[in-house]
């Protein structure tokens, strides 16, 4: 069986892995991040990135919105020109796309609550076009998820913005857990497990910070992770810092700074970086879907870091503050 897999993977994924081996050499390096941190203005940052793959996307960017659009375009091209053409099983492609479907679902529902145009909160990175979220023409599984989100996030008949994030996360991770199992790929399953653990820690921190009742933890725990509701309930009785230190001792969260888990400004980049580190073994596999998945994840981390750095600079965030946000990766 293993012999057959060697032959099949070399033929099926050889082209994509060959591309990955070259593309990996073009990932941003520590020196790039140092120069981006040291840059005095956003213009200087654009000059640093002009020699990289992001140069053409950021050519005309001036504002934070432009940067968001440019980086979304970079990710869209990565998905369309690389992920979709890498011969990966449909479930693996869907794993990446589905994350953005739920981001869009969240965006549309938030727009409804805040009474703003939904278009501003949507992107074209998901498995279905952003317009279909506006028109409400969703595939059955997303329509069902939306209906569950509406019923769970409603307070006296109206959607509650406070409850929305947590409820969407539960639906998102339920879907990703299912897709990761269907993919039958251990690295994708690992990515889903680590992602679910991180989401549960995020919910745990949010509930602790808002002094919500312990019963809320059970409602916000997402499936697919290794942390049980009972464990989180038990950890509610110790100080938050101590609880986070205990949580990062588990294998899925090993290596992440507990302070990053407590800091919303650092959480997302640190979380992506942790998943990327978990995929380190995947990068070492000579041929198969694993190096391709690991590369896409690395690029996602890169985009998340650039978002932090570029938009932070435009917003006038101090260099030292940006450096603290970056230390989980660089």
């Amino acid at each position: 069986m293993a012999r057959y897999r060697t032959i099949r993977d070399a033929i099926r994924f050889g082209y994509a892995v060959g591309r990955v081996r070259v593309l990996e050499t073009r990932l941003l390096k520590r020196s790039h991040y140092e120069r981006l941190l040291d840059a005095r203005t956003f213009e200087d940052q654009r000059r640093v990135l002009s020699e990289t793959v992001y140069g053409s996307y950021l050519d005309h960017a001036r504002t934070a919105d432009d940067v968001e659009i440019a980086l979304d375009r970079a990710l869209a091209d990565l998905y369309n020109d690389f992920l979709e053409t890498a011969n990966l099983p449909d479930e693996i492609v869907m794993y990446f796309r589905r994350m953005h479907d739920f981001e869009n679902l969240r965006g549309r529902l938030k727009a409804e609550v805040l009474d703003i145009p939904a278009k501003e909160l949507l992107n074209d990175l998901g498995s279905i076009p952003a317009e279909r979220f506006i028109s409400g023409d969703l595939p059955p599984e997303l329509a069902a998820a939306e209906s569950r989100i509406r019923s769970r996030a409603s307070r006296s008949g109206e959607l509650s913005a406070d409850a929305l994030d947590a409820v969407v996360d539960v639906e998102r991770f339920t879907a990703l857990d299912l897709i990761s199992h269907e993919s039958k790929n251990s690295h994708v399953r690992q990515m889903a497990t680590v992602g679910a653990d991180l989401a549960n820690v995020k919910a745990f921190v949010r509930i602790r910070r808002m002094d919500r009742p312990l019963a809320d933890i059970g409602r916000h725990v997402v499936p697919g992770g290794t942390i049980s509701v009972q464990e989180l309930t038990a950890l509610s009785r110790v100080p938050l810092e101590e609880a986070l230190k205990r949580l990062v001792m588990r294998p899925s969260l090993a290596g992440i700074d507990p302070e990053a888990l407590a800091d919303p400004a650092r959480f997302d980049v640190a979380a992506d970086a942790l998943i990327s580190r978990h995929l380190h073994r995947a990068r070492m596999i000579a041929v198969g879907p694993e190096p391709v998945v690991a590369y896409v994840m690395q690029r996602k981390v890169e985009v998340a870091m650039l978002r932090t750095l570029l938009i932070g600079k435009i917003a006038g965030v101090e260099r030292d503050v940006l450096r603290v946000r970056m230390r989980d990766v660089a």
Partner: peptide
């Protein structure tokens, strides 16, 4: 076939 696929991927980039 195996190595040519990978080589084509490398050369395409």
């Amino acid at each position: 076939t195996s190595i040519s696929n990978a080589a084509a991927g490398i050369v395409s980039e």
